[in-house]
Design a protein around this nucleic acid. Sequence first.
DNA 1: CGACCTGTTGATTCTGCTCAATCAACGTGG
DNA 2: CCACGTTGATTGAGCAGAATCAACAGGTCG
Lengths: 214, 214
Amino acid sequence: MHIQSGFRANRPAQEATGAPDLLSAMQPAAVTFYPEGAVIYAQGDTAGPLYFVEFGCVRICRLSADGRRQITAFHVAGEVFGFEAGAEHESYAESVDGTGIQALRSTCGNQPTGSLLLLAVRSLGRMQNHLMVLGRRNANERMAALLVDLNERQGGGAVVYLPMQRNDIADYLGITFETVSRILRCLKDQRIVRLKAVNEIEILDHEALLDMCA
Amino acid sequence: MHIQSGFRANRPAQEATGAPDLLSAMQPAAVTFYPEGAVIYAQGDTAGPLYFVEFGCVRICRLSADGRRQITAFHVAGEVFGFEAGAEHESYAESVDGTGIQALRSTCGNQPTGSLLLLAVRSLGRMQNHLMVLGRRNANERMAALLVDLNERQGGGAVVYLPMQRNDIADYLGITFETVSRILRCLKDQRIVRLKAVNEIEILDHEALLDMCA
DNA sequence: CGACCTGTTGATTCTGCTCAATCAACGTGG
DNA sequence: CCACGTTGATTGAGCAGAATCAACAGGTCG
């Protein structure tokens, strides 16, 4: 891990909607490249720095004793992750598809904690949304919610790019990867989406998708 | 709402584990009493102050368009809630059982944002735990997780007090209230708990409960 | 080419939901 | 005091949605 090599600029960090003054206040730090599947921090690691996603996608995971995995969040370009209440990371973070990440050192040092608070509270809001999805929506609605969410985060075009594979989607939505497959097939049959590629989904009926996660 | 009358000191605010320096930095504010079911803030209200629970229990809820409800958190004495990313509350907060609440005015004014950040990050951690529960655990395990959580928050005695009713438990755990009933019956038959009263549960086999949510 | 990995699809099982009845506790009004 | 309505909790029967188990297709890489 911590391999520092050839960048692959998927998308530039979107106008830093997450970290406005934060980044400008930092001295320019090195961007580390994490190839697909690389661990950014592990469960039990001592927490400390925050991480800014320059490009690519990161998954935040938690394992239960019997091996079940829940992905609590995906983070894409422009977002910050790594908040931890205690001294150790209770979750672990992995690169989904090859990501460039800037470590923001010294939460302890003097930083604009105001903007940090804003970022944390944003994560909180996203997580509340996700709680609603996991607690009160069926498989169709969960998939629709993810597609809409990714679509918005990617600028709202007609095509949604799925950086993660079926297994990750399943563990994020709290279903199985077989069900993910079936749901996509179902959405395809209803002419709501079109599968351009295995990780590229064209939205044909945006309204229908929104209705599903209303 | 905002009825300011006879306090009922269930339990004193536990050693303010949530808000160490925060409270001491505030000038003593009035404690408002919210009777059972009273709305503390509504969905769409302009956000602003944070709220410190003096005694009692608060539920944070979110409604979907078709009326399904998800309770994203319960907050008991000593905890702080009301964080919001945008200008409006995306959730609403209600008193579960008659609560005393102190409004911490002026997030905008100069407050120790450091300790606010800590509180927000703690909420984040609890929410991640809950995401795991909703995404990857069955009804038994969810109920066990709630019992263990409440038990810890209440000091770890033998008896867990349930301030909320079955409907609330269900909407928190993402199941139905009938299922809650059945699970409790199941736990009772297994001699893991004993129902002293409808809202008072004695834990007979603490180990078993812990195993269930391992 | 074969091994492997990811994704898709089918058949079957089972958990938890829906619908519905019953019960206990409580308050109200005659 | 009792009949009545209400509300929350429990329990049962049947069903549906998603999980599980299993087979197979397509792509990649050694």
